[in-house]
Computed example of a mutant assay.
Amino acid sequence: MAETLISGVAGRYANALFELAREAGAIDAVKADLDAFVALLAESDDLKRLVRSPVFTSEEQEKAIAALLAKAGISGLSGNFFKTVAANRRLFAVEAIIRGYNALVAAHKGEVVAEVAVAQPLSDAHAATLKGALDAMTGKDVRLDVSVDPSLLGGLKVKIGSRLVDASLRTKLNSIRTAMKEVR
């Protein structure tokens, strides 16, 4: 397995969680719990505020996270992880930590992850077509990590490793705007 480097606060937590999960033989179980938390985060503006806002004390965050985890059925290693992150006032970094953990899992399994940002959700057919094109380009099995960013206006951005392909309408319009300024 090639060494995957995830840095910063998120990297330290992601690496620690991955090592604990690997020792416990629970890599996939932890990933499923993290994915469930991401789904909860996507559907709740209140949870997003709790995670991102510095106005909540660590005690308030711990209580809220503990209640949420109990309701969602997230316990064990994953539950302790979220409680530790809340206690250490690092909930603001939880999304980056989860992305880092997922990258470590992908590297562990020999997968290639493509971070795809789109203006609107992809249909299953478009996702399959994109995955097929990326599989052919890389010669490996590519897993898509799709996020929706309406500010792109249209098109998409694809990042695999350090390579970025920006085919967003926003970037194209900015290029045209820059070219028009140069003509004047």
Results as ranks from 00 to 15, higher is better:
121 P>V: 07
148 V>T: 14
51 V>T: 09
115 E>I: 01
15 N>G: 15
127 A>W: 03
39 A>L: 12
47 L>Q: 09
161 G>P: 00
78 S>V: 03
184 R>D: 08
67 A>S: 15
103 A>Y: 00
60 E>Y: 03
144 L>A: 01
41 L>V: 04
71 K>T: 14
184 R>N: 10
41 L>N: 11
120 Q>S: 13
40 L>V: 11
178 T>Q: 04
36 A>K: 13
107 A>E: 13
53 S>V: 14
27 I>M: 04
36 A>E: 11
51 V>K: 07
127 A>M: 10
182 E>M: 04
147 S>K: 14
170 R>S: 11
173 L>H: 08
136 A>N: 07
111 E>F: 13
124 D>Y: 05
75 S>P: 04
44 S>I: 08
89 R>C: 01
31 K>Y: 02
118 V>W: 07
36 A>I: 00
58 S>N: 14
70 A>N: 10
7 S>T: 13
156 L>W: 07
170 R>L: 12
158 V>D: 06
99 R>D: 13
13 Y>W: 01
27 I>H: 03
169 L>W: 08
94 V>D: 01
177 R>D: 09
55 V>W: 10
62 E>W: 05
125 A>N: 07
12 R>A: 10
37 F>I: 03
32 A>C: 00
96 A>Y: 08
73 G>P: 12
72 A>N: 11
92 F>G: 12
124 D>I: 09
106 A>F: 00
16 A>H: 02
6 I>R: 07
101 Y>E: 08
37 F>R: 05
54 P>C: 10
95 E>N: 07
143 R>C: 02
